[in-house]
Amino acid sequence: MLKHEKIKGRGAQSAVVPDRFGLAQRNVDGEWRDAMEQLEGPPVKLRTQVTEEHPKTILSFNQSPDIFFDRSINAYRGCEHGCVYCFARPTHAYHDLSPGLDFETKLFAKPDAPRLLRETLARPKYVPKPIAMGTNTDPYQPIEKRYRITRQLLEICLECRHPVTITTKSDRVLQDLDLLKEMAQQELVAVAISVTSLDPALSGKLEPRAAAPHKRMAALGQLAENGIPTHCSIAPIIPAITDCFMEEIIQEAASAGVGSIGWIPLRLPHEVAPLFREWLDVHFPDRAAKVMSIVRSIRNGRDNDPHFFSRLRPSGVWAELFRTRFRVACRKNNVKKQNFYLETGNFRRPSVDGQLQLL
């Protein structure tokens, strides 16, 4: 891992190279850029690059027992928000790219996504269930302003009366408020906004290009005010860094009329662990050891627990303390557990190539 000065405006502090796919051996090819980065580190000012990707399919299916959805869409690969803790970072390694700086600077957009979704929904054997957006990379990251792929996907889902869930860290979701209101009236959408802290300076280090905390809270309130089922996700809880904001986030979300609140513990799979350790050394060297000690205590002595049923459910004294604090804060603010119902019975297959449905 490269040693260098703090990289302003980015979450990762290096282009950490994974060794799971032999990328370390292929990465150094003798070019002058390799020698320069080994001596000086990566350039301080990194420009975002976007490559258009043309996949053959757009829906991803899973059978995980830990998550509530079985299908998802990711309009983009990589995420400019740059959240250093993002569990999706290792997916960039599949393309011989770094889960570190490459993940937040070398992005992929999928402009064919709307067409592919329409073709998928038109298949005679397709059975509708809620589609999750924002499960791997944020559907409202900055490049959505240019591509508007997420909006096109929502337009198709509204046309077909297909239910959708959205998870984001951006108030840019309000730009599609017109669609969301109409979908909510038909019980077709629920939106979750992740709020990690209420300190803009801390958020600027953790998630440098995501919306500021107060903008996210305001977006939650505006969504709720417009009748859209809204969830505030306190995610992730980072021990000794962000857990101190739990009670205040719950209070503000409840005051904004948000009907559902939850929390998710920090996860550090594969290359995320060394990236996060490096981030701690850069920004919080005084408590880095303490943070990782607590993380390991809730993950059965490891940086990460990859097993089904336990990977999203931490154990130990610290985990129980977080649960207790969460329950007490929800009780004080009259927040009750709420499940959102999404309608699948009104689904109608879309037309393809202008051909109308017979029935």
Rank of each mutant, 00 (worst) to 15 (best):
113 A>F: 09
122 A>E: 00
121 L>G: 00
100 G>D: 06
109 A>M: 10
107 L>D: 05
102 D>V: 15
99 P>D: 10
87 F>H: 07
99 P>I: 15
82 G>T: 09
100 G>Y: 05
83 C>F: 05
85 Y>I: 13
102 D>Q: 10
111 P>N: 12
108 F>K: 09
98 S>H: 06
87 F>P: 00
118 R>M: 08
116 L>I: 11
104 E>P: 09
103 F>V: 14
117 L>Q: 04
89 R>H: 09
117 L>C: 08
118 R>N: 07
90 P>S: 09
120 T>V: 03
113 A>W: 05
107 L>S: 09
115 R>A: 14
110 K>L: 13
92 H>W: 14
116 L>T: 06
92 H>S: 15
91 T>K: 02
100 G>H: 06
94 Y>I: 04
102 D>K: 11
82 G>D: 02
96 D>K: 00
116 L>F: 04
115 R>E: 13
98 S>E: 04
92 H>R: 12
108 F>D: 01
93 A>P: 06
98 S>G: 09
97 L>I: 00
114 P>Q: 03
112 D>H: 10
89 R>G: 11
119 E>N: 07
98 S>I: 13
103 F>K: 11
123 R>K: 13
92 H>A: 15
117 L>Y: 05
99 P>L: 12
98 S>L: 11
86 C>W: 02
104 E>H: 12
97 L>G: 00
85 Y>W: 09
87 F>K: 04
96 D>Y: 02
104 E>C: 14
96 D>S: 08
111 P>Y: 10
105 T>H: 11
100 G>N: 08
83 C>W: 01
122 A>K: 01
103 F>R: 09
83 C>P: 01
117 L>K: 03
100 G>C: 12
121 L>Y: 01
104 E>F: 12
85 Y>K: 05
